[in-house]
Write a protein that binds this DNA or RNA. Sequence first.
DNA 1: CAAGATATTGGTACTGATACTAAGTAGAGA
DNA 2: TCTCTACTTAGTATCAGTACCAATATCTTG
Lengths: 200, 200
Amino acid sequence: MIHDVFIVDDDAAMRDALSLLLENNGMNTEVFADGSTFLQACEYQNPGCVLLDMAMPGMNGHEVLTTMNERGLQIPVIFLSGYGDISMAVRAMQLGAIDFLEKPISGAKLIKRLQRALMNDEGRREMQLHIQASRQSYSRLSPREREVMVLVVSGLLNKEIAHKLQLSPRTVEVHRIHVMHKMGVSNIAELVSVAGLCKI
Amino acid sequence: MIHDVFIVDDDAAMRDALSLLLENNGMNTEVFADGSTFLQACEYQNPGCVLLDMAMPGMNGHEVLTTMNERGLQIPVIFLSGYGDISMAVRAMQLGAIDFLEKPISGAKLIKRLQRALMNDEGRREMQLHIQASRQSYSRLSPREREVMVLVVSGLLNKEIAHKLQLSPRTVEVHRIHVMHKMGVSNIAELVSVAGLCKI
DNA sequence: CAAGATATTGGTACTGATACTAAGTAGAGA
DNA sequence: TCTCTACTTAGTATCAGTACCAATATCTTG
Protein backbone atom coordinates (compact mmCIF):
# COMPACT_ATOMS: atom_id res chain seq x y z
CA MET A 1 0.00 0.00 0.00
CA ILE A 2 1.35 3.41 -0.99
CA HIS A 3 1.11 6.16 1.57
CA ASP A 4 1.33 9.89 1.05
CA VAL A 5 2.75 11.95 3.87
CA PHE A 6 2.43 15.72 3.71
CA ILE A 7 5.14 17.57 5.60
CA VAL A 8 4.31 21.13 6.57
CA ASP A 9 7.14 22.97 8.29
CA ASP A 10 8.75 26.38 7.89
CA ASP A 11 12.20 24.99 8.66
CA ALA A 12 13.82 23.78 5.43
CA ALA A 13 16.33 21.55 7.20
CA MET A 14 13.54 19.86 9.11
CA ARG A 15 11.53 19.34 5.92
CA ASP A 16 14.51 17.72 4.21
CA ALA A 17 15.36 15.50 7.15
CA LEU A 18 11.77 14.32 7.56
CA SER A 19 11.31 13.75 3.87
CA LEU A 20 14.50 11.74 3.63
CA LEU A 21 13.61 9.62 6.64
CA LEU A 22 10.12 8.81 5.39
CA GLU A 23 11.11 8.20 1.77
CA ASN A 24 13.70 5.74 3.07
CA ASN A 25 10.86 4.00 4.86
CA GLY A 26 8.86 3.57 1.69
CA MET A 27 6.48 6.51 1.87
CA ASN A 28 5.72 9.20 -0.64
CA THR A 29 6.29 12.65 0.77
CA GLU A 30 5.30 16.12 -0.27
CA VAL A 31 6.77 19.12 1.52
CA PHE A 32 5.25 22.54 2.14
CA ALA A 33 6.82 25.58 3.78
CA ASP A 34 3.59 27.01 5.13
CA GLY A 35 -0.03 26.17 5.87
CA SER A 36 -1.80 28.04 3.11
CA THR A 37 0.39 26.53 0.40
CA PHE A 38 -0.41 23.11 1.77
CA LEU A 39 -4.13 23.82 1.95
CA GLN A 40 -4.15 24.92 -1.68
CA ALA A 41 -2.11 22.06 -3.07
CA CYS A 42 -3.11 19.10 -0.96
CA GLU A 43 -4.25 16.37 -3.32
CA TYR A 44 -5.41 13.60 -1.08
CA GLN A 45 -5.34 10.47 -3.22
CA ASN A 46 -3.74 7.60 -1.35
CA PRO A 47 -4.21 6.90 2.33
CA GLY A 48 -1.91 9.25 4.11
CA CYS A 49 -1.16 11.61 6.91
CA VAL A 50 -0.05 15.18 7.60
CA LEU A 51 3.00 16.03 9.70
CA LEU A 52 2.16 19.53 10.80
CA ASP A 53 4.44 21.98 12.53
CA MET A 54 2.76 24.15 15.11
CA ALA A 55 4.73 27.40 15.04
CA MET A 56 4.93 28.80 11.52
CA PRO A 57 4.82 32.25 9.98
CA GLY A 58 1.39 32.94 8.52
CA MET A 59 -1.06 30.33 9.68
CA ASN A 60 -0.07 28.33 12.72
CA GLY A 61 -0.82 24.65 13.07
CA HIS A 62 -4.11 25.13 14.90
CA GLU A 63 -5.38 27.41 12.17
CA VAL A 64 -4.40 24.97 9.46
CA LEU A 65 -6.22 22.13 11.20
CA THR A 66 -9.27 24.30 11.82
CA THR A 67 -9.39 25.16 8.13
CA MET A 68 -9.05 21.50 7.22
CA ASN A 69 -12.00 20.69 9.47
CA GLU A 70 -14.07 23.42 7.86
CA ARG A 71 -13.29 22.04 4.42
CA GLY A 72 -14.02 18.49 5.49
CA LEU A 73 -10.48 17.39 4.70
CA GLN A 74 -10.31 14.30 6.83
CA ILE A 75 -6.73 13.12 6.44
CA PRO A 76 -5.20 12.40 9.87
CA VAL A 77 -2.93 15.06 11.34
CA ILE A 78 0.11 14.52 13.55
CA PHE A 79 1.49 17.65 15.15
CA LEU A 80 5.22 18.10 15.45
CA SER A 81 6.01 20.93 17.79
CA GLY A 82 9.31 22.27 18.96
CA TYR A 83 8.13 24.06 22.05
CA GLY A 84 4.71 23.14 23.21
CA ASP A 85 2.87 22.77 26.46
CA ILE A 86 0.04 20.59 27.62
CA SER A 87 -2.67 23.07 26.83
CA MET A 88 -1.42 23.45 23.28
CA ALA A 89 -1.37 19.68 22.83
CA VAL A 90 -4.83 19.28 24.33
CA ARG A 91 -6.28 21.96 22.08
CA ALA A 92 -4.71 20.24 19.09
CA MET A 93 -6.26 16.92 20.04
CA GLN A 94 -9.62 18.56 20.65
CA LEU A 95 -9.44 19.91 17.11
CA GLY A 96 -9.12 16.35 15.91
CA ALA A 97 -5.40 15.70 15.60
CA ILE A 98 -4.62 12.05 16.15
CA ASP A 99 -1.21 12.62 17.72
CA PHE A 100 1.04 15.35 19.05
CA LEU A 101 4.80 14.84 19.13
CA GLU A 102 7.62 16.97 20.49
CA LYS A 103 10.73 17.84 18.57
CA PRO A 104 13.33 16.56 18.68
CA ILE A 105 12.02 13.05 18.10
CA SER A 106 13.86 9.86 17.21
CA GLY A 107 13.34 8.47 13.74
CA ALA A 108 12.15 5.15 15.11
CA LYS A 109 9.51 6.72 17.33
CA LEU A 110 8.26 8.99 14.58
CA ILE A 111 7.94 6.08 12.17
CA LYS A 112 6.07 4.06 14.75
CA ARG A 113 3.54 6.77 15.51
CA LEU A 114 3.23 7.54 11.81
CA GLN A 115 2.47 3.90 11.01
CA ARG A 116 -0.32 3.99 13.54
CA ALA A 117 -1.84 7.04 11.88
CA LEU A 118 -1.53 5.48 8.43
CA MET A 119 -3.17 2.24 9.52
CA ASN A 120 -5.94 4.33 10.99
CA ASP A 121 -6.39 6.13 7.69
CA GLU A 122 -6.47 2.99 5.55
CA GLY A 123 -9.66 1.74 7.16
CA ARG A 124 -11.20 5.18 7.17
CA ARG A 125 -10.40 5.81 3.51
CA GLU A 126 -12.47 2.95 2.17
CA MET A 127 -15.51 4.12 4.05
CA GLN A 128 -14.75 7.67 2.98
CA LEU A 129 -14.58 6.81 -0.71
CA HIS A 130 -17.92 5.10 -0.39
CA ILE A 131 -19.45 8.10 1.33
CA GLN A 132 -17.99 10.47 -1.21
CA ALA A 133 -19.52 8.48 -4.06
CA SER A 134 -22.91 8.68 -2.38
CA ARG A 135 -22.56 12.41 -1.85
CA GLN A 136 -21.72 12.86 -5.50
CA SER A 137 -24.78 10.88 -6.54
CA TYR A 138 -26.86 13.02 -4.22
CA SER A 139 -25.46 16.19 -5.74
CA ARG A 140 -26.66 15.03 -9.17
CA LEU A 141 -30.28 15.00 -8.01
CA SER A 142 -32.53 17.85 -9.05
CA PRO A 143 -33.88 20.03 -6.23
CA ARG A 144 -37.28 18.40 -6.42
CA GLU A 145 -35.77 14.95 -6.36
CA ARG A 146 -33.86 15.85 -3.22
CA GLU A 147 -37.02 17.03 -1.51
CA VAL A 148 -38.73 13.77 -2.41
CA MET A 149 -35.75 11.74 -1.30
CA VAL A 150 -35.57 13.12 2.22
CA LEU A 151 -39.28 12.48 2.67
CA VAL A 152 -38.99 8.95 1.30
CA VAL A 153 -36.07 8.28 3.63
CA SER A 154 -38.05 9.60 6.57
CA GLY A 155 -40.60 6.88 5.89
CA LEU A 156 -43.50 8.76 4.33
CA LEU A 157 -45.75 7.16 1.72
CA ASN A 158 -45.94 8.61 -1.77
CA LYS A 159 -49.41 9.85 -0.97
CA GLU A 160 -48.18 11.75 2.09
CA ILE A 161 -45.22 13.17 0.22
CA ALA A 162 -47.53 14.33 -2.56
CA HIS A 163 -49.72 16.13 -0.06
CA LYS A 164 -46.75 17.70 1.70
CA LEU A 165 -45.25 18.99 -1.56
CA GLN A 166 -48.60 19.87 -3.15
CA LEU A 167 -48.05 17.41 -5.98
CA SER A 168 -49.89 14.57 -7.60
CA PRO A 169 -48.91 11.11 -6.32
CA ARG A 170 -47.87 10.29 -9.87
CA THR A 171 -45.27 12.99 -9.86
CA VAL A 172 -43.87 11.76 -6.61
CA GLU A 173 -43.61 8.27 -8.01
CA VAL A 174 -41.60 9.50 -10.96
CA HIS A 175 -39.24 11.52 -8.78
CA ARG A 176 -38.88 8.55 -6.48
CA ILE A 177 -37.88 6.26 -9.34
CA HIS A 178 -35.37 8.85 -10.57
CA VAL A 179 -33.90 9.11 -7.09
CA MET A 180 -33.44 5.35 -6.87
CA HIS A 181 -31.73 5.24 -10.25
CA LYS A 182 -29.48 8.23 -9.67
CA MET A 183 -28.47 7.04 -6.21
CA GLY A 184 -27.68 3.63 -7.63
CA VAL A 185 -29.89 1.66 -5.27
CA SER A 186 -32.68 -0.79 -5.92
CA ASN A 187 -34.75 -0.61 -2.75
CA ILE A 188 -35.67 1.70 0.09
CA ALA A 189 -33.46 -0.08 2.61
CA GLU A 190 -30.34 0.71 0.60
CA LEU A 191 -31.50 4.26 0.02
CA VAL A 192 -31.97 4.85 3.74
CA SER A 193 -28.55 3.34 4.42
CA VAL A 194 -26.66 5.56 1.99
CA ALA A 195 -28.64 8.58 3.14
CA GLY A 196 -27.63 7.79 6.69
CA LEU A 197 -24.00 7.34 5.71
CA CYS A 198 -23.68 10.75 4.12
CA LYS A 199 -25.87 12.30 6.83
CA ILE A 200 -28.55 13.68 4.57
CA MET B 1 -30.91 20.82 33.86
CA ILE B 2 -29.29 18.82 36.67
CA HIS B 3 -25.73 17.68 36.15
CA ASP B 4 -23.85 14.94 37.97
CA VAL B 5 -20.11 15.37 38.33
CA PHE B 6 -18.06 12.42 39.54
CA ILE B 7 -14.85 13.43 41.29
CA VAL B 8 -12.20 10.73 41.45
CA ASP B 9 -9.09 11.75 43.39
CA ASP B 10 -6.99 10.14 46.08
CA ASP B 11 -6.39 13.47 47.80
CA ALA B 12 -9.19 14.10 50.31
CA ALA B 13 -8.54 17.84 50.48
CA MET B 14 -8.77 18.09 46.70
CA ARG B 15 -12.02 16.11 46.66
CA ASP B 16 -13.57 18.40 49.24
CA ALA B 17 -12.43 21.56 47.52
CA LEU B 18 -13.69 20.42 44.13
CA SER B 19 -16.97 19.19 45.52
CA LEU B 20 -17.57 22.48 47.35
CA LEU B 21 -16.76 24.52 44.28
CA LEU B 22 -19.04 22.56 42.00
CA GLU B 23 -21.93 22.28 44.44
CA ASN B 24 -21.78 26.05 44.83
CA ASN B 25 -22.14 26.25 41.08
CA GLY B 26 -25.30 24.19 41.10
CA MET B 27 -24.00 20.77 40.24
CA ASN B 28 -24.50 17.45 41.98
CA THR B 29 -21.21 15.84 42.93
CA GLU B 30 -20.17 12.38 44.00
CA VAL B 31 -16.66 11.77 45.26
CA PHE B 32 -14.51 8.65 45.03
CA ALA B 33 -11.07 8.04 46.49
CA ASP B 34 -9.96 5.59 43.84
CA GLY B 35 -10.78 4.29 40.38
CA SER B 36 -12.22 0.90 41.15
CA THR B 37 -14.66 2.29 43.70
CA PHE B 38 -15.84 4.76 41.10
CA LEU B 39 -16.20 2.09 38.43
CA GLN B 40 -18.33 -0.04 40.72
CA ALA B 41 -20.57 2.71 42.00
CA CYS B 42 -21.00 5.00 39.02
CA GLU B 43 -24.70 5.41 38.40
CA TYR B 44 -24.94 7.50 35.30
CA GLN B 45 -28.42 9.00 35.34
CA ASN B 46 -28.28 12.66 34.51
CA PRO B 47 -26.01 14.24 31.96
CA GLY B 48 -22.68 14.57 33.64
CA CYS B 49 -18.94 14.39 33.59
CA VAL B 50 -16.02 12.77 35.38
CA LEU B 51 -13.16 14.75 36.92
CA LEU B 52 -10.44 12.16 36.99
CA ASP B 53 -7.10 12.40 38.74
CA MET B 54 -4.24 10.80 36.86
CA ALA B 55 -1.87 9.62 39.60
CA MET B 56 -3.70 7.46 42.13
CA PRO B 57 -2.85 4.38 44.14
CA GLY B 58 -4.34 1.28 42.55
CA MET B 59 -5.65 2.11 39.08
CA ASN B 60 -4.26 5.24 37.49
CA GLY B 61 -6.37 7.56 35.39
CA HIS B 62 -5.49 5.92 32.07
CA GLU B 63 -6.53 2.54 33.39
CA VAL B 64 -9.83 3.88 34.67
CA LEU B 65 -10.63 5.45 31.31
CA THR B 66 -9.61 2.31 29.45
CA THR B 67 -11.95 0.27 31.62
CA MET B 68 -14.74 2.76 31.02
CA ASN B 69 -14.22 2.40 27.28
CA GLU B 70 -14.34 -1.38 27.52
CA ARG B 71 -17.60 -1.20 29.44
CA GLY B 72 -19.10 1.29 27.03
CA LEU B 73 -19.48 3.90 29.75
CA GLN B 74 -19.67 6.99 27.63
CA ILE B 75 -19.77 9.82 30.13
CA PRO B 76 -17.20 12.50 29.22
CA VAL B 77 -13.94 12.51 31.17
CA ILE B 78 -11.82 15.51 32.12
CA PHE B 79 -8.40 14.68 33.49
CA LEU B 80 -6.99 16.70 36.36
CA SER B 81 -3.32 15.99 36.75
CA GLY B 82 -0.81 17.45 39.16
CA TYR B 83 2.34 16.61 37.28
CA GLY B 84 1.84 15.66 33.69
CA ASP B 85 3.68 16.01 30.45
CA ILE B 86 2.58 16.31 26.86
CA SER B 87 2.78 12.61 26.11
CA MET B 88 0.58 11.79 29.08
CA ALA B 89 -1.98 14.34 27.98
CA VAL B 90 -1.91 13.12 24.40
CA ARG B 91 -2.40 9.52 25.45
CA ALA B 92 -5.34 10.58 27.61
CA MET B 93 -6.95 12.39 24.69
CA GLN B 94 -6.34 9.42 22.40
CA LEU B 95 -8.20 7.26 24.90
CA GLY B 96 -11.17 9.56 24.48
CA ALA B 97 -10.88 12.14 27.27
CA ILE B 98 -12.45 15.40 26.22
CA ASP B 99 -10.09 17.61 28.22
CA PHE B 100 -6.89 17.48 30.23
CA LEU B 101 -6.23 20.13 32.86
CA GLU B 102 -3.24 20.79 35.08
CA LYS B 103 -3.41 21.33 38.83
CA PRO B 104 -3.47 23.82 40.27
CA ILE B 105 -6.32 25.34 38.29
CA SER B 106 -8.46 28.37 38.99
CA GLY B 107 -12.06 27.76 39.92
CA ALA B 108 -13.29 29.94 37.07
CA LYS B 109 -11.29 28.07 34.47
CA LEU B 110 -12.35 24.68 35.79
CA ILE B 111 -16.01 25.68 35.75
CA LYS B 112 -15.68 26.96 32.21
CA ARG B 113 -14.12 23.76 30.87
CA LEU B 114 -16.57 21.69 32.86
CA GLN B 115 -19.52 23.54 31.38
CA ARG B 116 -18.22 22.75 27.93
CA ALA B 117 -18.05 19.04 28.77
CA LEU B 118 -21.53 19.07 30.27
CA MET B 119 -23.01 20.81 27.24
CA ASN B 120 -21.34 18.19 25.11
CA ASP B 121 -22.90 15.44 27.16
CA GLU B 122 -26.40 16.86 27.10
CA GLY B 123 -26.70 16.46 23.37
CA ARG B 124 -25.06 13.05 23.42
CA ARG B 125 -27.33 11.76 26.18
CA GLU B 126 -30.53 12.24 24.25
CA MET B 127 -29.17 10.29 21.32
CA GLN B 128 -27.85 7.68 23.71
CA LEU B 129 -31.21 7.13 25.40
CA HIS B 130 -32.79 6.71 22.01
CA ILE B 131 -30.18 4.15 20.96
CA GLN B 132 -30.55 2.27 24.20
CA ALA B 133 -34.29 1.98 23.70
CA SER B 134 -33.77 0.57 20.23
CA ARG B 135 -31.23 -1.94 21.52
CA GLN B 136 -33.71 -3.07 24.13
CA SER B 137 -36.41 -3.56 21.51
CA TYR B 138 -33.96 -5.54 19.43
CA SER B 139 -33.10 -7.77 22.39
CA ARG B 140 -36.77 -8.64 22.70
CA LEU B 141 -36.83 -10.18 19.22
CA SER B 142 -36.72 -13.94 18.89
CA PRO B 143 -33.63 -15.41 17.19
CA ARG B 144 -35.53 -16.03 13.98
CA GLU B 145 -36.94 -12.52 13.99
CA ARG B 146 -33.44 -11.12 14.32
CA GLU B 147 -32.27 -13.12 11.33
CA VAL B 148 -35.18 -11.86 9.28
CA MET B 149 -34.63 -8.30 10.46
CA VAL B 150 -31.01 -8.08 9.32
CA LEU B 151 -31.96 -9.42 5.92
CA VAL B 152 -34.89 -7.02 5.61
CA VAL B 153 -32.63 -4.15 6.57
CA SER B 154 -30.10 -5.23 3.98
CA GLY B 155 -32.78 -4.75 1.34
CA LEU B 156 -33.78 -8.29 0.44
CA LEU B 157 -37.33 -9.18 -0.61
CA ASN B 158 -39.38 -11.59 1.47
CA LYS B 159 -38.96 -14.16 -1.27
CA GLU B 160 -35.17 -13.90 -1.16
CA ILE B 161 -35.12 -14.03 2.61
CA ALA B 162 -37.32 -17.12 2.52
CA HIS B 163 -34.92 -18.83 0.16
CA LYS B 164 -31.89 -17.83 2.21
CA LEU B 165 -33.41 -19.13 5.45
CA GLN B 166 -35.12 -22.13 3.85
CA LEU B 167 -38.54 -20.90 4.84
CA SER B 168 -41.86 -20.29 3.19
CA PRO B 169 -42.44 -16.66 2.13
CA ARG B 170 -45.45 -16.69 4.43
CA THR B 171 -43.30 -17.36 7.44
CA VAL B 172 -40.98 -14.54 6.55
CA GLU B 173 -43.94 -12.21 6.22
CA VAL B 174 -45.09 -13.05 9.73
CA HIS B 175 -41.64 -12.59 11.22
CA ARG B 176 -41.32 -9.33 9.36
CA ILE B 177 -44.58 -8.01 10.79
CA HIS B 178 -43.52 -9.06 14.28
CA VAL B 179 -40.20 -7.29 13.85
CA MET B 180 -41.92 -4.08 12.82
CA HIS B 181 -44.26 -4.21 15.81
CA LYS B 182 -41.60 -5.10 18.35
CA MET B 183 -39.20 -2.48 17.08
CA GLY B 184 -41.95 0.10 17.23
CA VAL B 185 -41.71 1.23 13.62
CA SER B 186 -44.28 1.39 10.88
CA ASN B 187 -42.19 1.23 7.73
CA ILE B 188 -38.92 -0.08 6.39
CA ALA B 189 -37.28 3.32 6.31
CA GLU B 190 -37.64 3.72 10.07
CA LEU B 191 -36.50 0.16 10.63
CA VAL B 192 -33.32 0.74 8.65
CA SER B 193 -32.70 3.97 10.53
CA VAL B 194 -32.95 2.44 14.00
CA ALA B 195 -30.92 -0.56 12.87
CA GLY B 196 -28.23 1.82 11.65
CA LEU B 197 -28.32 3.77 14.92
CA CYS B 198 -27.64 0.79 17.11
CA LYS B 199 -25.20 -0.67 14.57
CA ILE B 200 -26.99 -3.95 13.98
C1' DC C 1 -34.56 29.64 -32.05
C1' DA C 2 -33.67 24.76 -31.02
C1' DA C 3 -32.17 21.32 -27.74
C1' DG C 4 -32.02 19.53 -23.40
C1' DA C 5 -32.96 19.31 -18.59
C1' DT C 6 -36.56 19.73 -15.13
C1' DA C 7 -41.08 19.38 -13.41
C1' DT C 8 -45.47 17.99 -14.02
C1' DT C 9 -49.45 14.52 -14.84
C1' DG C 10 -51.75 10.47 -16.79
C1' DG C 11 -52.63 5.11 -17.96
C1' DT C 12 -51.93 0.04 -17.33
C1' DA C 13 -50.18 -4.07 -15.51
C1' DC C 14 -47.40 -6.47 -12.40
C1' DT C 15 -45.09 -7.39 -8.10
C1' DG C 16 -44.49 -6.82 -3.21
C1' DA C 17 -46.03 -5.66 1.39
C1' DT C 18 -49.68 -5.46 4.92
C1' DA C 19 -53.83 -6.66 7.66
C1' DC C 20 -56.88 -9.82 8.84
C1' DT C 21 -58.06 -14.58 10.37
C1' DA C 22 -56.54 -19.36 11.40
C1' DA C 23 -53.88 -23.31 12.88
C1' DG C 24 -50.32 -27.05 13.52
C1' DT C 25 -45.69 -28.38 15.82
C1' DA C 26 -41.99 -28.30 19.17
C1' DG C 27 -39.59 -27.16 23.32
C1' DA C 28 -39.22 -24.95 28.04
C1' DG C 29 -41.02 -24.43 32.35
C1' DA C 30 -44.70 -24.65 36.10
C1' DT D 1 -49.55 -32.84 31.95
C1' DC D 2 -50.65 -28.20 30.79
C1' DT D 3 -49.30 -23.77 29.29
C1' DC D 4 -46.60 -20.44 27.08
C1' DT D 5 -43.52 -19.06 23.58
C1' DA D 6 -41.41 -19.55 19.31
C1' DC D 7 -41.66 -21.22 14.71
C1' DT D 8 -44.07 -22.67 11.01
C1' DT D 9 -47.64 -22.42 7.06
C1' DA D 10 -52.05 -20.96 4.76
C1' DG D 11 -56.02 -17.91 2.49
C1' DT D 12 -57.89 -13.49 1.28
C1' DA D 13 -58.25 -8.73 0.48
C1' DT D 14 -56.21 -4.41 0.10
C1' DC D 15 -52.72 -1.06 -0.45
C1' DA D 16 -48.14 0.57 -2.10
C1' DG D 17 -44.36 0.51 -5.25
C1' DT D 18 -42.29 -0.49 -9.90
C1' DA D 19 -41.97 -0.79 -14.91
C1' DC D 20 -43.49 0.00 -18.87
C1' DC D 21 -45.98 3.36 -21.87
C1' DA D 22 -46.80 8.78 -23.17
C1' DA D 23 -47.52 13.91 -22.91
C1' DT D 24 -47.15 19.06 -21.70
C1' DA D 25 -45.00 23.31 -19.71
C1' DT D 26 -40.99 25.89 -18.27
C1' DC D 27 -36.39 27.33 -18.21
C1' DT D 28 -31.64 27.30 -19.31
C1' DT D 29 -28.08 26.84 -22.66
C1' DG D 30 -25.83 26.44 -27.18
